[in-house]
Amino acid sequence: METSSPRSVVLIHGLWYGAVSLALVGRRLRKRSFETHAFGYPTLRQSLPANAAALREFIAKLDLDQVDLVGHSLGGLVILRMLDEYGDIPPGRVVLLGSPVHGSAVARRVAERRYFRPLVGQARAALEAGFSHAPAGRETGIIAGSRSIGVGRIFGGLSEPNDGTVSLAECRLEGADECILPVTHTGLVVAPSVVRAAARFLTEGKF
C-alpha cells in the first residue's frame, strides 16, 4: 500500500530572531511527520520586497510540488508579500504566528524615537504597512497570543488581547481562520500548543 509523502513546510523567522528561533518548531513538526526547511534572512538590513524575493528563490531551489509556509511575526509579512508579488509559488497552506498584518503599533513607536530606530532597521516600512486579506487560493491560518508580557508595555501598551508585542487586532486577516492561545509573542515559537495548532491547520486546513 502506498504511503502519502510528508507535507513540506518552510519556516520563516521574525525580527531579530534568526532561523534558529524556529528550530524547536521544526523539530516538533518533524516528529509529526512534516518535512521542514528553515529560511534565514537579514531582518534589519534588507527591505520586505528584497526578503520576499529571496524567499521565492529559496523555495524555487527546493524544487517542491507542494510547500506550506509558517512565518513568525515579520516572517509572516515576508510570506504575504511574496505571495502578493509572485504567482509561481507551489500550492500549500499558510500559518502566521503573531504577524502584525495590519502594521505594528509598537514598531511605529520604536521608529519615532531616534535612539531606538535602529532596532527596526529596514523592517520599519513593513511593520508600519499592512495587508487587507488572506492570499487568494491558499488556506491561511492565524495563531495569535493573548498573554500580554513583552516590549509593548515599555512602548505605551497595546489594546487587549495581545501577546505583549502584537495585538490580536493587528494579526487578524480577512479570509483567514483564527486560533488564540495563552502565550506571549516569544511563546509562539516555543509553546507545544502552538505547534499542535499549526500542525492541525497544515494537515486539515482548519483549526
Rank of each mutant, 00 (worst) to 15 (best):
M1G: 15
E2S: 15
E2R: 13
P6Q: 12
P6E: 09
I12P: 01
Y17C: 06
G18H: 08
A19G: 04
V20H: 07
L24A: 09
V25C: 10
G26C: 05
F34W: 09
E35Y: 04
F39Y: 12
F39A: 12
T43Q: 09
L44M: 07
A52W: 02
A53M: 02
A54K: 12
E57H: 11
V70S: 12
S73V: 10
L74W: 02
L77K: 14
L80I: 11
M82R: 01
D84Y: 05
E85T: 15
G87H: 09
G87K: 07
I89D: 04
P91L: 11
G92C: 13
V95E: 13
G103Q: 00
S104H: 10
A105V: 11
V110M: 01
E112N: 15
L119R: 02
G121R: 11
A123E: 01
A123M: 08
R124W: 03
A125P: 02
A126D: 06
A134P: 09
G137K: 10
G137M: 08
T140A: 02
A144V: 14
S146T: 15
G150H: 01
V151N: 02
G152R: 00
G157T: 03
T165W: 00
R172D: 00
L173T: 01
A176C: 10
E178N: 02
L181I: 12
V183F: 05
A191L: 05
A191C: 07
L202C: 07
